[in-house]
């Protein structure tokens, strides 16, 4: 029976794939149904994932197994219930208390961690000896990294008008940024194409059995 259900599952997968691709022709009821199934199932999946993987191990299990040592966890539980009060218009203001804890923690963590990982680490990685390297390509690469990053940052500095030498440097920054955007775009296109190839492999392999999956 399990084998039949597995086969049925592959047929369902193929039908849903065609239903989504039917949008390429035009918006139609079949696509809309598949889209709503996707939304419903995604939401349901994350709901269950949150319960089993976040709330159960971090809140339910510690409170039920050892309440004495985890009494403080009652506080986030109450704040979590406050958060759900957002759904009740008359008392939705109590959710602000929970939101303020989340926002405060996020802001505090973001301030320190972003400063460490995104600002200081990236800056220190850019400060390097551009004259040393195993070959010319690496040395050239280092120069590009230093000049590109510096001019790119200058481009994002809007407190000074982009004129004269400052403007010329900012313009050079745009050049590096455009090359970077182009590369990122090309890379993303290839990622999407590989997903498309994956779908074709599914249809021709798992569903029709024409190619080896």
């Amino acid at each position: 029976m399990a084998l039949t259900m597995e086969r049925l599952g592959v047929w369902i997968g193929a039908a849903l794939t065609f239903a989504i691709y039917s949008f390429l022709y035009k918006d139609n009821p079949v696509y809309k149904i598949a889209e709503q199934i996707f939304v419903g199932i995604s939401a349901g999946y994350w709901f269950i994932y949150t319960i089993f993987n976040i709330l159960k191990p971090n809140l339910y299990t510690p409170l039920t197994s050892d309440f004495g040592n985890n009494t403080l966890l009652v506080l986030p539980a109450i704040l979590g219930i406050f958060m759900l009060c957002r759904l009740v218009p008359k008392i939705n203001w109590v959710s602000r208390y929970a939101i303020s804890v989340v926002v405060g923690t996020t802001a505090g963590l973001a301030l320190i961690r972003t400063l460490q990982s995104d600002v200081i680490t990236q800056m220190s990685e850019t400060i390097m000896n551009p004259f040393s390297g195993p070959n010319a390509a690496v040395i050239l690469g280092k120069w590009i990294l230093i000049i590109g990053t510096t001019t790119g940052i200058i481009y994002f500095f809007f407190s000074k008008k982009h004129t004269g030498a400052f403007g010329a440097t900012a313009k050079l920054g745009i050049v590096f940024l455009m090359i970077s955007f182009g590369a990122a775009f090309g890379y993303t296109v290839m990622a999407r194409i590989s997903l498309l190839i994956g779908r074709l492999q599914y249809l021709l392999g798992e569903w029709l059995g024409i190619i080896q999956p």
């Binding site: 996020t106 802001a107 505090g108 973001a110 301030l111 972003t114 400063l115 990982s117 995104d118 600002v119 990236q122 800056m123 990685e125 850019t126 050239l140 690469g141 280092k142 590009i144 990294l145 000049i147 590109g148 990053t149 001019t151 790119g152 940052i153 481009y155 994002f156 920054g173 590096f176 940024l177 090359i179 970077s180 955007f181 590369a183 990122a184 890379y187």
Partner: peptide, 25 residues
Amino acid sequence: IMKYLQKTGQRAIMICAGLGIVGSS
């Protein structure tokens, strides 16, 4: 391109966005 040129833009954006996040926080 991916190793150096793409990294320059990403690094500049990351540093500037990081400073923006610090300010917003």
